[in-house]
Design a protein around this nucleic acid. Structure first.
Lengths: 234, 234
DNA sequence: ATTATCTATAGATCTATAGATAATGC
DNA sequence: ATTATCTATAGATCTATAGATAATGC
């Protein structure tokens, strides 16, 4: 222990702020935290860079040291709602050959990512002003790739009855929508716990026509991989 | 037939526009139509008054002859998603004493209003940038009054089982959400027809624990009032 | 006279850049 | 030297108002 006013902030390089930090963590993370709160509560287009800076406790221009602009802040937030799931998908497919276990794990990872993200930022994905941001298409592509994964797994699982007249692509979309329902639930004020997440992931199997016994089997099978697909999230 | 360039536009008073009208109907309606399209596709805050004016084919400043500002445009659109239903409620309650028929008719009117509004403007109600507009609270109050009507009718209908541990107010909210699901359906690209609307309205009765036979009865009973509660909408 | 537009513009933002400054790190 | 802030400001909006203008209506 050498210096510093309060114990919880080590001295950092750089010119000191006019006001002591209002949020914890590295400055870039402080910006993302403040922006996430404002974007989800007031809307993206309706939030100015000045407001974000004020919420962080820095000057408006200082934001541009950490980000190239307002657009980069929101795209970084968006990528955090999907990157963990993308990473999980790679790991899951190397861990199991069983498509039912894999689909359950992918859905579970997706739900937990959306459920635990700060300030329900998954919701930004549905906002039309955000969709116009430069770089949003990259995020759409990633989300499409994930939808394709759902569709591919579903096509290996689905019974003829469950497929009905809709193709595997359409069923894949249905599964994505099922998972994204957690965004709506959070917006309505619900908190999603591990049981809710498991229930939604199971629903994906049921929508593919998997019967109770096989769902139970997949859930049991998945349990042994749970710790390996992510680093023990909330 | 006396003058006018094309048959579909009678000469109006007022200085002529620089460009011929791009939309039909009275100027004020043209503004609302253009604004509804832009607000729902790009977002309220992300749409400028200049863009609205351009879509109408007038100068930006000319908007202010018809509206006091951007806020009044969006609140007028919002009130059109709820006023028809409010009016229906008054008429319905004077037509029938039966709460089940009444609830069915209220829900049906609500669904049809939201389903037939141009450009899914009911969705604006859920946008955080719109919620900050001056005068939005008035709209919230109206929507709350409607929720209270649902709750009051539900409390006269609901079985003990259907109420469960939730109170009538909470059940009322549930019914409102059930009806508002049409906003989500439209956003997802679905078109809601009369059968869909009837199905959703019936769902409200079922959520109150009304059995099949009684639902059928209410639907039959409601049919004779259908023409009287609104002027034959789409 | 009334209606509905137009032109011109004030004043308030808002985003982003340029360059100075004050810490730590080596 | 590097890092992270600051001040100052350019340039591009954006909303709203003032006042002129060109039709129809009486």
């Amino acid at each position: 222990m050498s210096s510093a006013a309060s114990a919880n902030q080590r001295p950092r390089p750089g010119r000191p702020r006019l006001t002591p930090p209002l949020l914890a963590g590295p400055p870039r993370e402080q910006v993302l935290e403040a922006a996430a709160r404002l974007f989800t509560s007031k809307g993206y287009a309706a939030t100015s860079t000045r407001e974000i800076a004020e919420a962080v406790g820095i000057r408006q221009a200082s934001l541009y040291y950490h980000f190239t602009g307002k657009g980069e802040i929101v795209t970084e937030l968006l990528s955090r709602t999907i990157r963990p799931t993308m990473d999980s998908v790679a790991r899951i497919e190397s861990l199991t050959e069983d498509p039912e276990t894999a689909l359950y794990l992918v859905a579970l990872s997706d739900v937990r990512t959306l459920a635990s993200a700060p300030h329900n930022i998954g919701w930004l994905y549905l906002a039309p002003d955000v969709a116009q941001v430069e770089g949003f298409d990259e995020f759409t592509a990633a989300r499409d790739a994930l939808a394709a994964t759902y569709a591919r797994l579903a096509s290996r699982i689905a019974t003829v009855d469950a497929l009905g007249s809709i193709g595997p692509a359409r069923l894949g979309e249905k599964l994505v929508h099922t998972v994204e329902e957690v965004i709506g639930l959070r917006n309505a004020g619900h908190r999603i716990n591990m049981d809710d997440a498991a229930w939604i992931a199971s629903s994906c199997l049921r929508l593919c026509g998997v019967d109770n016994a096989r769902v139970e089997l997949a859930v049991r099978d998945a349990e042994e991989f749970l710790d390996e697909i992510d680093g023990g999230r909330p």
